[in-house]
Simulated assay, not measured.
Amino acid sequence: MTFPELQTDRLHLVEVTMEHAQGIFENFSNPAVLQYYGMDPMTELAQAEKLVEHFRNSFLTSHSIRWAMIQKEDNRFAGTIGLNNLSKGMKRAEVGFEIHPDFWRTGMTSEALKSVLDYSFSELGLHRLGAVTFLDNVASINLLKKHGFVQEGILRSYLFQNGQSHDARVFSVLKNQ
């Protein structure tokens, strides 16, 4: 199974591999990055390596696709973006992403999201993409709305982080919406 590489003006979207483990660790050990992610920070590189393996296995079993966002200019790892809970039969998936603070407010996540949306609808033939955010994750909410996502409702106690449950907003965008 060949991994689908995507391109934007400033990014290569490639398969997450062990060469990205250090960048993943830097993102997933950073409390600012994880503030609205729904997991506790990583404490050792081995956790990032295990996540890389999980991304690969989930791709091979057609459950998800996770891309590393690599800046073309300097080949720097910015973060990841991907499709979770991928169901080609039901023509749906959920999109998720995280990006290092050095790349916040640069438009790179927006570029990557547009590319993933285009690929999902045109190449995978999906009809619906969903997304889940913390209630007050304004940056992600605005990004999703910019790309046509509509809030469908609130999921009560849907996310668990820092020893407590959190409500979440659920969004979706439909093909040809």
Rank of each mutant, 00 (worst) to 15 (best):
R10N: 07
R10F: 07
R10W: 08
L11R: 03
L11T: 04
L11A: 03
L11F: 03
L11H: 02
L11D: 12
H12Q: 14
H12T: 15
H12N: 14
H12K: 04
H12G: 08
L13G: 02
L13W: 11
V14W: 07
V14K: 02
V14C: 04
V14H: 11
V14I: 15
E15V: 02
E15H: 03
E15L: 02
E15A: 10
V16Q: 10
V16F: 09
T17A: 08
M18I: 08
M18D: 14
M18W: 10
M18F: 15
M18V: 11
E19Y: 14
E19H: 13
E19P: 10
E19S: 09
H20F: 00
H20S: 04
H20A: 00
H20R: 06
H20M: 00
H20Q: 03
A21F: 05
A21D: 11
A21L: 10
A21Q: 11
A21N: 09
A21Y: 06
A21T: 04
Q22E: 09
Q22W: 09
Q22G: 01
Q22I: 08
Q22S: 08
Q22A: 15
Q22M: 13
G23Y: 05
G23H: 06
G23W: 09
G23D: 04
I24W: 07
I24S: 09
F25G: 00
F25N: 00
F25D: 01
F25A: 02
F25V: 00
F25P: 00
F25M: 01
E26P: 13
E26M: 10
E26A: 15
N27S: 01
N27M: 13
F28M: 07
F28Q: 06
F28K: 13
F28H: 06
S29C: 12
S29V: 14
N30P: 04
N30C: 05
N30A: 03
P31A: 01
P31F: 08
A32E: 15
A32I: 13
A32Q: 12
A32M: 13
A32W: 09
A32K: 15
V33H: 01
V33T: 06
V33M: 12
L34C: 09
L34F: 03
L34A: 05
L34S: 03
L34H: 00
Q35V: 04
Y36V: 04
Y36I: 10
Y37D: 12
Y37H: 12
Y37S: 01
G38H: 07
G38A: 07
G38V: 05
M39K: 03
M39A: 12
D40M: 14
D40Q: 13
D40I: 11
D40F: 07
D40W: 08
D40R: 08
D40G: 12
P41V: 07
P41S: 04
P41H: 11
M42S: 02
M42C: 05
M42Q: 02
M42P: 01
T43P: 05
T43C: 11
T43E: 14
T43H: 14
E44R: 15
E44C: 01
E44V: 06
E44T: 10
E44P: 08
L45P: 06
L45D: 03
L45F: 11
